[in-house]
Design a protein around this nucleic acid. Sequence first.
RNA 1: UGAGUCAGCUGGACGGCCGCUCGGCUUUUGCUGGGAGGAAAGUCCGGGCUCCAUAGGGUAAAGCGCCAGGUAACGCCUGGGAGGCGAGAGCCUACGGAAAGUGCAACAGAGAGUAUACCGCCGAACUCGAGUUUAUCUUGGGUGGUAAGGGUGAAAUGGUGCGGUAAGAGCGCACCGCGCAGCUGGCAACAGUCUGUGGCGAUGGUAAACCCCGCUUGGAGCAAGGCCAAAUAGGAAUCCUUUGCUGCGACCCGCAGUGGAUUCGGGUAGGCUGCUUGAGGCUUGCGGUGACGCAGGUCCCAGAUGAAUGGUCGUCCACGACAGAACCCGGCUUAUAGGCUGACUCUUUUU
RNA 2: CGGGGCGUAGCGCAGUCUGGUAGCGCACCACACUGGGGGUGUGGGGGUCGCAGGUUCGAAUCCUGCCGUUCCGA
Length: 125
Amino acid sequence: MTCRFDKSLRLLNAQDYQSVFDNSTVKVSCAEFLFLAQQNQLDHPRLGLVIAKKNVRLAVQRNRLKRIIRETFRQEQSRLPAIDVIVLARRGADSLENPELHRQFQQLWRQLDKRAKKRLGLSEE
RNA sequence: UGAGUCAGCUGGACGGCCGCUCGGCUUUUGCUGGGAGGAAAGUCCGGGCUCCAUAGGGUAAAGCGCCAGGUAACGCCUGGGAGGCGAGAGCCUACGGAAAGUGCAACAGAGAGUAUACCGCCGAACUCGAGUUUAUCUUGGGUGGUAAGGGUGAAAUGGUGCGGUAAGAGCGCACCGCGCAGCUGGCAACAGUCUGUGGCGAUGGUAAACCCCGCUUGGAGCAAGGCCAAAUAGGAAUCCUUUGCUGCGACCCGCAGUGGAUUCGGGUAGGCUGCUUGAGGCUUGCGGUGACGCAGGUCCCAGAUGAAUGGUCGUCCACGACAGAACCCGGCUUAUAGGCUGACUCUUUUU
RNA sequence: CGGGGCGUAGCGCAGUCUGGUAGCGCACCACACUGGGGGUGUGGGGGUCGCAGGUUCGAAUCCUGCCGUUCCGA
């Protein structure tokens, strides 16, 4: 079980991002975040982040959210199927404290895993 | 003891486990070292660097504006002057010119800029009456005189006193204030218990109104620029010529390219580079009131690129503010929990 | 990285260049017309002029610094 997080586990350019935005098959959302996902041809999941300046004003808060999201992804990655995921932050996301973020993301990653597996299972049939 | 002024520092600490990024050594598995700020922010100024022409001339436009110095440069800093505020330590100031010209001042007020006569004061001079004691007399008015007093306003053109006068007035004098010239001190701004001179309706205010004077400013920005280069399209370099067009995004001049001939390479997506050794930090000595400069020694201290510098657990305490590098520096401005240091002032009490 | 616009009554806007009285429409309140509502008419209330300094006798207006919002270019 790996817990690393290097460049192979991230979306690296605009094409990767655009592809997920155009063809997202799995969605999970809550009040402060939105997950978009698409199946990829690799043997591991990849993560991309969109934390808009419009929704989170301060750079410090944007950095904090990214770190927490990456950290939870790093811990959960072995459970996830081979998908490209983009996490978008909504307005008010910066008002959540670190422990609350950890609790929410644990739930959200599991939800995403369940839905993705269900969707991929159906498409395979 | 309390209140305050100025200058400066700090911006949670330690340990375990799991990560991220860059460098070095290993070599495909690790080891080891570095890893946000005083404002990294706002982008308000000034530079470096790069390209446009080598950055040229003129006009326009914009900015700055006491003096001297510091600096790569500045609208910054230091020292000094002047004015203002405060009991004081201290603090604040876009602080050139109103005797080049134009403009503006609501309401109120008689009058607001070649100032002004509403109330008031005067009746000397000239003049029209009345009275009589016929006088160089008394009295009423007019032509007027007056800037003392009242009143209006943000602002009404020196102040106080004495003389003077019909009443008054720098009309005259004394003192104070002001202007001009000289002298002295100072590099200068400027200053003076200095000298002379001007009666002072000369010369009101406003230039963050136009303006005048002096000084400064070419344009763009690391998505600058350079290199390697799919697809697609047909062009690019060298020589010759000059109308229009483009570079050139204030305008004109000026300069270069496009147009024709000859010779073969150019370039978007993407990648690499620019990318961190620098007007650098620390320290010692010397010069300077100081900003700062000079000399010696020593150190290498983030360099990401969907974008690293973190998460979690434990212990401790004052329970942690504002806040995240993106080419790099010098400033300015704004945000900032708490803690610490030094110098100074005032007040109270004691000696 | 660079450049512009806007902020005035609950809402949408004038006024700012050229400084002295803050105004218009809708909405709101009262009254009249109507049996009542709607509609029309008359009258009325409501403003830290985004914030803080400065210039001026006087600032929504001029100058400086902040805050918010929105747009454009590379």
